[in-house]
Design a protein around this nucleic acid. Sequence first.
DNA 1: ATCTTCATTGCATTCGTATGCAAATATGTA
DNA 2: TACATATTTGCATACGAATGCAATGAAGAT
Lengths: 351, 351
Amino acid sequence: MKSPRQGITSTDVARRAGVSQSAVSRTFTVGASVAPETRRKVLEAARDLGYRPNAIARSLITNRSRMIGVVMAYLENQFYPGVLETLASRLQERGYQVLLFTGFKDRNSDPVYEQVMQYQVDGLFLASTTLSSGLSGECAAAGIPIVLFNRTTESAQTSSVTTNNREGGRKIADFLVAGGHERYAFVAGVADSSTNRDRETGFCEGLEKHGINEIIRVAGQYSMPAAADAARRLFSRSERPDAIFVANDHMAIAVMDVARYEFGLNIPEDVSIVGYDDVGPARWPGYQITSYSQPLDAMVDASVTILMDQIDQNKVSSIHTVIDAELIVRESARKPDHGLQSRNGQLVWTG
Amino acid sequence: MKSPRQGITSTDVARRAGVSQSAVSRTFTVGASVAPETRRKVLEAARDLGYRPNAIARSLITNRSRMIGVVMAYLENQFYPGVLETLASRLQERGYQVLLFTGFKDRNSDPVYEQVMQYQVDGLFLASTTLSSGLSGECAAAGIPIVLFNRTTESAQTSSVTTNNREGGRKIADFLVAGGHERYAFVAGVADSSTNRDRETGFCEGLEKHGINEIIRVAGQYSMPAAADAARRLFSRSERPDAIFVANDHMAIAVMDVARYEFGLNIPEDVSIVGYDDVGPARWPGYQITSYSQPLDAMVDASVTILMDQIDQNKVSSIHTVIDAELIVRESARKPDHGLQSRNGQLVWTG
DNA sequence: ATCTTCATTGCATTCGTATGCAAATATGTA
DNA sequence: TACATATTTGCATACGAATGCAATGAAGAT
């Protein structure tokens, strides 16, 4: 039981070291002019007192909080915790912190919006389908760089990092056609998300190119229960599809489980399933999902680069980075007899 | 392309509204004395200018950042993203933000430690096995309340929230014995984590009570690959165990996969597996893990309460909250013919 | 010894908001 | 109307660190 609650300030250190507060500040500022002897005295005093620079006070005067706002509506889809982890890691390497906004699935997201603006974040990493539009306008006006992660928009003042979702959809179509399927289905994510739209467009384009014009489309809302429902509808049809592209792995898992445990189907003998993201469970022996891999590290690096550049140059611009990705072939879909290639231990579809 | 980068301040608003800066501040401070008419003028001016209070500046003067530092070494175990999501949600409801520290699996955690201290967090939520000891001492000295989540310690100045891990271990022992097993094994987490230690102790106690003194112990390090290795060792023994308690579900999944796909074992016919946490995948049809459920919401609520109380009272104390939990019975372990009870749609072991 | 040059240092101010205090105004009472 | 009381307001200052500017001192050049 104690309650000091008032910290050691640079002035305290200065007094003990017998120098001015400025000298203390300069000691903790890289590139500032301090004599070696002064620095030594300051560091000693600082150590004795247990001094740490107050990041809040620094932020006020420098007008830089060194915090990046990270907005992720939910973390249930395993893809996002992974993103968060590497993102935090990369940012911390550069001396930036993560101010996290998440868990507002159902609640109103207005407060989030207010908080983001009040905390003077230096940049914003948006990985949430909702509220992208509102925030981006306001931030652009405030000169705060934004990067949309795994989604994009036409807005002139936000940047984005995605994989080539449209090409991904196309390649998946090619792959499934090469596997010799007959009835194709698509389990969609949230309809108005750019990512879902592009994957769907690409998939349809790809199938049409092969003369396939009938695609059964069901909505999975990027959620497991919704995807499971969608799967039930699919498998209850008289003409059951034998090739299903599910807009992400998170939903694909639900679809596979319904296929196996509710309809007794064998995968891939009875039905082929292809996912997107290549999340952890996709690699588990029970799933082995053939999935379009989103290279997480590269995507995060690209995002961080965009943010840092704009912060350093103090100007907001609109950069859209599209990362190359591959279709990793595992066991959840029938394999074509050509176009497969082994690349560092993984089988890849090269068409 | 633009670069304003200088915000609207309370003084700007004051000028436009024809009042003092104090009046503006008071308008945005709950409970402060402002005449309705003044407030109206201020709010109007604020809206016109797009003013938002600067949380950084406020923190400096109030000596409260309204940020809680959250330290989670890694998010791979699905339990933690769930915790993070509800925690962020609860904190935001109370006007607190989450400053997240994660992704330092391999890297040195010293910098993390420095950052936490510099950012003047009002409290600290520690869900990381490592670095708990170092941080807790320093924070206690600085008067910052800490709560250890899902781990505990004897330190007089930190609080903790856990389930009754020891009793959990005991109940699992009872359950497995009631199921009529013969050879028992334990797949451990990180050896020196309090959580693992308690679960193990309870499990051994429970078995001994039934006269079982031989338990095969292998180390899983709370990681899937390590747990898979551990499982391989277990199943390669001449006398294969038929009852395994795995210290958490994350590892249990790996153990089950190895059992099924590498050793062709049937679960629970050939081997019973019990996990801990009751994470999302434990409920997937392919796993259906019998697992000791950690009530996430209750644990988070308890943690938040502890932190908020101590922040409000401005004193650090040591509170250890132990939450009641239950063994949820599913299909990964042979079921006893007694002691089971259905409770809101789930089967629970009541011994 | 005198003058330049350059590195260090301290002073004073600044960032944007909150708040104690005293002044000013409004409200109620006799 | 005069006075007491309650409410509202602005002034001035504080929070902790960074930084432009001028002063100081040391080193080097002549």
